[in-house]
């Protein structure tokens, strides 16, 4: 899944970094439409457990994906401190339930490293790159991949 790293020209990517289960993740800021607080979602029948339901985003029906649960952790117990990152990928609008937004930073393409060849399929599917920063690893989330199959077909 890893994209080749170009060595000649350094592209800068603005990302929003956030925390899920005390780990740092980030997504391309160009995909992020807004960030809002958690509001109780309406459950969807027959949906995978990481689809927490739908909320009303100014008249639009916004599906909420529990990123932690999607990545294999247990379901997040959402409280008012949780945050929804509203993202749009290929016309598809959805919300990511995360613990907290930590930073906006810019990452050079040289900083992007391929996801280490680890055993977890889930990790390799959903994390397209990792970034080393200040002794920390930031995982670059592939938004397109984390949508459930059903939603991906809609988009």
């Amino acid at each position: 899944m890893a994209e080749p790293v170009t060595e000649h020209t350094q592209f800068m990517t603005e990302v929003i970094a956030f925390k899920v289960h005390n780990d740092e993740y980030c997504v391309d800021i160009m995909s992020v439409r807004e960030i809002r607080g958690w509001t109780p979602a309406t459950r969807l029948p027959h949906a995978p457990s990481y689809v927490r339901g739908v909320i009303n985003l100014r008249g639009a029906v916004l599906p909420i994906i529990d990123l932690g649960a999607r990545l294999g952790f247990e379901l997040t117990e959402p409280s008012e401190r949780n945050v929804i990152i509203v993202a749009q990928v290929e016309g598809q609008l959805f919300g990511l339930l995360v613990d907290a937004v930590s930073d906006i930073m810019s990452i050079g393409s040289d900083d992007l490293q391929p996801t280490p060849n680890i055993g977890s399929d889930q990790a390799r599917t959903f994390i397209k790159n990792v970034v080393a920063r200040e002794e920390q690893m930031i995982r670059f989330v592939d938004l397109k991949q984390i949508l459930p199959q059903q939603m991906a077909q809609v988009a």
Partner: peptide, 25 residues
Amino acid sequence: KGLQDNYGRIQGVAAATILGDGQIA
């Protein structure tokens, strides 16, 4: 409100609506 656009079809559900308290039903 269409559910199809942002989520897709769900068995048993025709569409969604927004209630007076802003919740989706």
